[in-house]
Write a protein that binds this DNA or RNA. Structure first.
Length: 679
DNA sequence: TAACAACGCTTTTTT
DNA sequence: AGCGTTGTTA
């Protein structure tokens, strides 16, 4: 194997080098924020290949997000020569699992064209089951059922494995749904996200020969963000490393922020107990932030107990103090921050290097409104996801049913879209028959049509659409998948439906569909496109232009910016009330880690703020400053005093300064009235 | 079946 | 406050 850059070990510190060079045996790399974690991981892969320890296809490398997988792929390709430019087994837990399952689908009772369903589909399936089983969804909401089922799956429990935790009536009811749910998924030849991992584990456990195949193939296993792994994922890793024992996990216990979706920090903390004779290497030198920012973050996180414990340091400059500002309300906060960016930061940094990190995505709205007003470009990362848009989901549903005729959830979604008078009663009829006879909706439809049980009008319509499904399946054999999409949108009447609406929204939807078709060209075939659509949440973020970044703190993990704003540090919002109610002290620590993640995103400057009054669910709430503010060492903070009066002028001047055509007295009066109303 | 009104839930985070 | 779901009516 040729490594194009032989000097890849240069410019690394001692610990980093150690983390890269020692390839064999279990190894845990505790990598603090900004300590060069990704670099170490990718260099380690390069080193494995360079030392002829393994071929690229013998390295299994898993991440949690598509973003991280892609980033690693890019960085590793730089080390490799062009012929082997990528690692075939680098991907998220979910995508790697899907790949494994497609190869051995029959071992878990699936067919290799199985559909991967998302939360939306999960929810509909659960609602259907609840309805059929006469479960009162007012007493037991599908939301709760879904979250419990997901939790069980994260633990690796199939219905037969469920162990009671106390609330027996609740658990019994959910368990009943869970059984039907799993049964139904199998009939539909479908998997949910949890199943992807779970099925892999059961497959390996029940088929040692299959496991053996991979134990022999995977010489090295590397894992990113290990602190986010859940129980079933750790078992998955455990199985796959049984033979060579070459597992290298990278993570940071202080950045564990996903316990709500099953992440178990215990996997990370007890790594050395799970894997005997393991090495633990700490990366504590931070290359990202100034001393002040780092000290502020370290001071805050030191309030947490149950840490592995590490002390981040930097030999960089002290830099600016962390600025703390109190605003009157959310609108003032957005205005004030917009002003700082416009007046101070824009000169120093690219807007792409300025971020506003919020606790909850709804907080971005006030900023958007303000930025639109003053004409400042911004992008919201992680907001509305491309593949979650209704029109995109509808179109993908057509493809899904073409690809896999048992995909009831797709069938249900588009059978009457556009309207073809297949109403509730007809669908219920088909559904009931299918459930009773353990058949998919499409098969059931054929039987019912044959038995002449469908109402005349619906019958014609149903026959028509079924015929179309078959035609499209034939089309797929001769045409490209993206050509098929156009044919479907045309022949199903979907395009026409949107065109006929003639409103702005429908135009946007048509645009999205064009974008979808364009995006489909990046994939070789229908199957691989559908896999992407199921597992990727967004089409690649457009980083063009100079724009301020708006996102949640969760979404910011792994990123860095010159200047970071952390608005909304108020009790109830951050730490978030709901999380405290659910899990108490544990949740408080997790919220604190989130604060730590947020703060450590900043390279040069950070701005924390809170407001006195915030509009929340339609009411004004008096808020208190977040307890986290007091936990940051005072010496690292600079308090900016802003009086109410001054602040009001601030808003006023802002609008005159930045918006053209708004200098009229009438407009100014309108603004003043608005401010009065707020009081 | 479709259009409209009433209701209630949301807005913590995501593969 | 705003959205989606459910219920009511034509």
């Amino acid at each position: 194997m040729q490594i194009s850059k032989l000097n890849y070990l240069n410019n690394l510190n001692k610990n980093q080098k150690e983390a890269i060079i020692d390839l064999d045996g279990p190894c845990l790399i505790v990598a603090g924020a900004g300590s060069g974690k990704t670099r170490v991981l990718t260099t380690r892969v390069a080193h494995i290949i360079n030392q002829n320890k393994a071929w690229p296809n013998q390295i299994l490398c898993v991440t949690f997000t598509n973003k991280a997988a892609k980033e690693m792929q890019v960085r590793i390709s730089k080390f490799l020569d062009k012929k082997v430019s990528s690692l075939p087994w680098l991907g998220t837990f979910h995508s790697v699992s899907a790949k494994l399952l497609r190869k051995h689908a029959s071992a878990v009772g699936l067919n290799s064209h199985f559909t991967i369903i998302d939360q939306d589909d999960q929810m509909r399936l659960i609602k259907n089951i609840a309805k059929a089983e006469n479960i009162d969804i007012k007493k037991l909401s599908p939301n709760i059922i879904l979250s419990i089922i997901n939790q069980w799956k994260n633990k690796g429990w199939l219905p037969k494995d469920v162990v009671s935790k106390g609330n027996i009536t609740l658990e019994k009811a959910v368990l009943k749904v869970y059984k039907f749910y799993q049964e139904r998924l199998k009939i539909l030849n479908s998997c949910d996200f949890g199943d992807l991992i779970l099925h892999c584990v059961t497959m390996f456990e029940k088929n040692p020969d299959i496991l053996e195949l991979y134990l022999n193939n995977f010489k090295y296993v590397l894992v990113d963000e290990y602190q986010d792994s859940n129980h079933i994922q750790s078992k998955w890793l455990n199985l796959l490393t049984k033979k060579n024992n070459n597992i290298c996990c990278v993570g940071d216990d202080d950045q564990s922020i996903y316990s709500w979706r099953g992440a178990e920090i215990g996997n990370f903390l007890n790594f050395d107990k799970t894997y005997k004779n393991s090495k633990i290497i700490k990366l504590e030198q931070n290359y990202r932030s100034t001393q002040n920012i780092l000290d502020a973050a370290s001071g805050l996180i030191s309030k947490n107990r149950g840490r592995l414990g590490k002390k981040l340091w930097t030999d960089g400059t002290k830099g600016e103090l962390v600025k703390l500002t109190c605003y009157k309300n959310g609108r003032d906060e957005a205005t004030g921050i917009g002003d700082i960016i416009e007046q101070n930061l824009k000169k120093k940094y690219s807007l792409n290097n300025v971020a506003i990190l919020v606790r909850a995505i709804f907080q971005t709205r006030e900023f958007e409104e303000r930025f639109l007003k003053i004409g400042m470009s911004y992008r919201v990362i992680g907001g509305t996801k491309f593949y979650e848009r209704a029109e995109v989901k509808d179109s993908v549903a057509f493809l899904r049913i073409v690809n896999q005729k048992n995909d009831d959830l797709a069938f249900e979604r588009i059978i009457n879209v556009p309207k073809r008078s297949l109403g509730e009663s007809t669908i219920k009829q088909i559904y009931d028959w299918g459930r009773a006879n353990k058949q998919s909706l499409e098969n059931s439809s054929y039987v019912l049509l044959q038995q002449n049980k469908i109402k005349p009008k619906a019958k014609i319509s149903l026959m028509g659409i079924l015929k179309l499904f078959d035609k499209w399946r034939l089309d797929l054999k001769e045409k490209k998948h993206y050509e098929l999409m156009e044919i479907i949108l045309d022949e199903s009447g979907y395009s026409k439906m949107l065109k006929d609406k003639k409103d702005l929204e429908s135009e946007g939807r048509l645009e999205n569909l064009k974008e979808l078709i364009r995006g489909m060209r990046d994939f070789d075939n229908l199957q691989s496109f559908l896999e992407h659509a199921a597992l990727a949440t967004s089409i690649d973020q457009n980083w063009d232009g100079e724009k301020v970044n708006l996102m949640t703190m969760h979404g910011s993990k792994g990123l860095e910016f010159d200047a970071v704003f952390l608005p909304g540090w108020e009790e109830g919002l951050f730490p978030h009330q709901k999380s405290l109610e659910e899990k108490g002290d544990l949740a408080l620590e997790e919220e604190r880690r989130l604060a730590y993640v947020g703060l450590t995103r900043a390279k040069k400057e950070s701005f924390i703020s809170f407001v006195m009054n915030r509009m929340y669910r339609g009411d004004w709430i008096d808020s208190l400053a977040s307890r986290f503010i007091e936990e940051i060492p005072e010496k690292n903070i600079q308090k900016e005093d802003i009086t109410e009066q001054k602040n009001e002028d601030f808003i006023f001047n802002q609008d005159i300064d930045y918006e053209e055509g708004t200098k009229s007295p009438g407009w100014a009066r309108l603004q003043r009235n608005k401010i009065k109303k707020l009081k």
